[in-house]
Amino acid sequence: MSAAKRVQQWATFARTWHIFDCKWQDPYDSANVIKKYLMGLHKPIYHPMNDSGDVVVCINSKEIALRGDEWRKRAYFHHTGYPGGASWTLAWELHNKDPTLIIKKAVYRSMKGNLQRRHTMQRLFIYPGEEVPHDVMQNVTNQIRQLRFVPTRLDHIPEEVTKTYPKVMDFPEDYVLK
């Protein structure tokens, strides 16, 4: 095998490390994307029996966004196995306890329940804030595109922009300014 071919072979089967910023992202939508990278579904050489999955590092998992009233409507079920051991935890309660769990459970549930799933989950790193350990961060070579655009707050937009931005509504003629 020539040197160039050998390098191509290494590059094909090497694990790539991806980073994903969860800020203002829906965890249930982004789980479908993260899953593809974790399982290696984005690769042309994908086969369920070869080990071609990548590593995904999720940051800012504390700042995920849920739709509408899902923070208080979505419940996570757990049963201890004993009689009366069932418990339902609401999404906001779970997020208070551990801000990485919602995204972790979303990715876990997006995959089919087979023997491979727990090993695939080992390749997912989730961090609640921006800080990532150096030994993890030094491997990252790719960024996964966010699904939803991160909204800008009005008080963070400079005043010149708000003043010169095209206007839609004009005041009626005898309106008293306040």
């Binding site: 966004a65 739709r67 509408g68 009233d69 923070w71 208080r72 609401l90 999404a91 906001w92 997020h95």
Partner: peptide, 14 residues
């Protein structure tokens, strides 16, 4: 407080 303190987005179709 509670569920109101986390980021929420809305669907305009609703």
């Amino acid at each position: 407080r509670d569920y109101k303190k986390f980021n929420t987005y809305f669907d305009e179709r609703t």
